[in-house]
């Protein structure tokens, strides 16, 4: 057995490797004998079949001639792919970039859609690569975490979940009810604190949130707590006065604990569309956001917008919220996120 024989064996083996085993004999038969297997009845039929085959051949990469399954990567296929990607909310630009990449590498080839999805997964993972950071914890004294976000994104629930995670680890948690604006926001957090057995520091309705934050951190220091989580009122990134209020909260807590806040988390609703980009930009600039909590990922929304968000602003996703219960918070796993993002894509064919 020389090197030449070895080299010749390769192309024959190649197709059978790509195919399910029951198809491998057929896959390795040449195109001519495949025709006879179809048993066309008349001359016209045979001609038609032959022409169809030629048309297929003309549109097909030579590497895929022997494949009988899979899909031709043509504009229709790419269009379908674009639709799948855009529907995850990753935005037209990111979707277009991925579609272009697939077009460059696989155009006019017949491939198993799973192969395409695999390459997309790889690409998405590369884009999300900086998102596996855990929480920064204080070396000594309490770790101060500021939780921010637009109205209704799920800040208070996320805080409850974070608190639960820490108390489960045996850490002592102090909550700061910094949403002094919305009616009953303090009550909502108090109910959670009672359920979770965490201490809560509150101020009167309408009082300065920075003073509540200050009191909460002071209490955490005094009580020797491990973690102090400060809630803030929901605000839109366009409200510059409210965004400045966040900077003030930062300054105030830093007076008590110089490195604080150790984390400033931005809660992004998984149902959010492209506006999340503007949110990330605004909150990063004004509040020095250090990471993202992607909430409400248990619904039908896929939260794809964090792909351009992490890419453009370098903000890692730290946790995902998966339900209404206090335990429904998980560390972000890029692999699982990407798998869920593309789940059901090309479902019928794959």
């Amino acid at each position: 057995m020389g090197i030449f024989n070895f080299g010749r064996k390769d192309p024959k083996d190649q197709p059978s490797k790509d195919q399910p085993s029951k198809d491998s004999p057929a896959a390795s038969t040449p195109a001519g004998s495949a025709d006879s297997a179809e048993k066309p009845r008349g001359l016209l039929d045979r001609l038609k079949a032959g022409l169809a085959k030629t048309a297929q051949v003309l549109r097909t990469d030579v590497r895929d001639l022997f494949k009988r399954e899979g899909r031709l990567v043509d504009e229709d296929f790419l269009e379908e792919l674009r639709g799948i990607l855009v529907r995850t909310d990753m935005g037209p630009a990111a979707a277009e970039a991925i579609v272009d990449d697939v077009r460059d590498r696989l155009r006019a080839r017949v491939v198993d859609p799973e192969v395409v999805l695999d390459s997309i997964r790889t690409q998405l993972l590369a884009r999300l690569r900086n998102t596996e950071a855990g929480l920064t914890m204080a070396v000594s004294g309490p770790t101060v975490i500021l939780v921010t976000g637009v109205n209704g994104s799920g800040k208070t629930t996320s805080i409850a979940k974070l608190a639960r995670m820490f108390t489960r680890d045996g850490k002592r948690v102090v909550l700061g009810a910094g949403d002094t604006f919305r009616a009953a926001a303090v009550e909502q957090l108090t109910m959670w604190a009672d359920r979770l057995g965490a201490e809560i520091v509150r101020g009167p309705q309408g009082s300065d949130p920075a003073s509540v934050a200050h009191k909460a951190v002071a209490r955490a220091v005094e009580a020797g707590a491990d973690v102090c989580i400060v809630d803030t009122a929901g605000r839109l990134q366009t409200q510059s006065n409210l965004m400045q209020e966040l900077s003030k909260i930062r300054r105030v807590v830093a007076k008590l604990v110089p490195e604080a806040p150790h984390e400033v988390l931005l809660v992004i609703d998984a149902t959010a569309g492209q506006n999340a980009l503007s949110q990330a930009k605004g909150f990063k600039e004004a509040a020095g956001c250090t990471g993202i909590v992607l909430s409400k990922l248990d619904g039908s929304a896929r939260g794809g917008v964090i792909v351009p968000v992490t890419e453009q602003f370098g903000l890692p996703v730290k946790f995902v919220g998966l339900g209404e219960g206090a335990d429904d918070l998980e560390p972000f796993s890029p692999e699982r996120f990407v798998a869920a993002l593309l789940e059901g894509a090309f479902g019928a064919e794959a």
């Binding site: 909310d89 149902t271 959010a272 569309g273």
Partner: peptide
């Protein structure tokens, strides 16, 4: 409906 909703708006 939240004006910031993305593609999921149709489904919900």
């Amino acid at each position: 409906v939240d004006a910031m909703t993305g593609q999921d708006a149709v489904r919900s």
